[in-house]
Nucleic acid binder design. Structure first.
Lengths: 212, 212
DNA sequence: GACAATTCTTGACACTCGTCCAGAACTCCT
DNA sequence: AGGAGTTCTGGACGAGTGTCAAGAATTGTC
């Protein structure tokens, strides 16, 4: 029983690539189960046994693939980022006019608000955890940076299309859109129904505002 | 041993007012200790025993004054709100010009960002918890409403002073300022030093933007 | 098919948690 | 001073936690 060192064993280095990736593949599988559990229960109420119950494995495996709980959750946070910034860039690329971009962007936000509500609440939960747990900070900041870049592209492109100039630093613009989204999520999960529509409106208004 | 029913016993009803309030007074005392603990450790890591250690009492007493943990924390959240909206109204009342109001408001925000950082991170933590725990939702929404009102007064008064008209619904304006503040808190607790100064700038810019 | 390396299961460990309760300590009134 | 009502203590309970390790099951290789 030779324990793995790092994430690569001697056997893997000489074996085929597909074989070598099996370890990483299972890590992803387990992390996805963890993400599902986390998004249902939140960080404070999620246990390793609960995560394992969302898989076909027993709770012991988690410690075979992850050193401890923090590494697992950190891995999850990193993985999360790859899911979250996809829809928007298509919108940016497709838009030919400012109005198109504005409408498409607002619709994308309102759409993900209801479609991925549980994932988003997990994000806000983990970001809050990072205020207390330094171990999460770097990953959280990295994701925040990715989201900020996304907003930067949207706002920048919109400014181009309408011949305006950004009226706020991009980081501040991101903070505003994020605040809008978070309030909308709060309302949506509380059952206040016009949440998506209101978000749609507010996003369009704010986008027009931050470029003049 | 006659257990208290609700929060008023027979003895209290006939006793003096000071005597009657002793129960409530101790509740506040315990809740303050709980708030301190929560703001240090965060919701996920705060236990009743830990809270009791911040007081001169033993852990059993918490169940004498609060039915269970949820009631204690709910009480804490309610109590928190009374602390958080005081500085700003003075600023609004004192300002004679738009510039004065803008500068005062921005300074107040930057000030509380560093002075009450731990309390603010608790607020964001609890608000995130409410995304998972319906028991917290009403209180969280109430506090959010109070904060929104505060922003409304600031933005409204500023619009008056500069003869502008609000360019965003007040609820959206609140969401934006809140987003700004949350990002600043994240940076501040991560040790990025210009956090307060940047918040100050961004707040002034945003305030000018949402009234035109 | 046998051997070795891996992946996975199972049960145990040492804690910590919220909750409860018997009774000690205290307070207040007559 | 004594007794009733109150506040508080400290220990116990059962459930749940992260972690670990011994060994069973599986897989890949010759």
């Amino acid at each position: 029983m030779s324990k793995r060192v790092g994430s690569v064993s001697l056997a893997e280095m000489t074996a085929t690539v597909g074989r070598a990736d099996k370890f990483e593949e299972r890590r992803r599988e387990l992390a996805d189960a963890a993400l599902q559990t986390l998004s249902e229960l939140g960080y404070a109420r999620t246990s390793l046994r609960e995560i394992a119950q969302h898989t076909s494995f027993s709770h012991g495996v988690l410690h075979y693939y992850f050193r401890d709980k923090v590494e697992l959750i950190t891995y999850c946070v990193r993985r999360y980022k790859s899911v979250c910034v996809q829809r928007y860039d298509e919108v940016v690329a497709a838009a030919r006019t400012g109005e198109e971009l504005s409408a498409g962007f607002a619709e994308a936000m309102a759409g993900t608000l209801v479609a991925d509500a549980r994932m988003h609440r997990l994000w806000y939960d983990l970001r809050s955890q990072s205020l207390f747990e330094p171990a999460f900070r770097d990953d959280v900041r990295e994701i925040d940076a990715i989201l900020e870049d996304m907003i930067t592209r949207v706002v920048g492109r919109y400014a181009e299309l309408v011949d305006g100039v950004p009226a706020l630093p991009f980081t501040a613009a991101y903070a505003c859109f994020d605040g809008l989204f978070q309030q909308a999520l709060l309302r949506h999960l509380s059952g206040v129904e016009p949440a998506p529509a209101r978000l749609h409106d507010d996003v369009e208004r704010l986008l027009a505002l931050v470029t003049n």
